[in-house]
Amino acid sequence: MKFDNDEIKKIAHLARININKNEADKVGEKLEGILGLIDQMTQVNTDGIEPMAHALDITQPLREDKVTEVDIRKKSLKLSNETHQSLFIVPRVIE
């Protein structure tokens, strides 16, 4: 599997990680190495095998519909980099 610069750019954008132009080659090289490792999987015949998403064969528990949480703005707003009147502030969101 070849990881060219366009592919890296696309993935980095999806992951919202800025990748320094000078490092792109190095990053690509390492990712290719890992994908090479992963590609061992292709040798395995997995026809008819059910994918396994969870370690245990149990089902989703349900929570009673009750309000249990309180207003924690005293804590939550303090943890943010920028707030204004109870809102978390970010650069303008364009819709």
Partner: peptide, 21 residues
């Protein structure tokens, strides 16, 4: 993009990239 570039280390970024891929 800059927050995540600067806030995460190399190995973490590598795994995020692989996982995204």
């Amino acid at each position: 993009c800059k927050t995540r570039e600067e806030g995460f280390g190399e190995e973490v970024k590598r795994r995020i990239m692989i996982g995204t891929y």
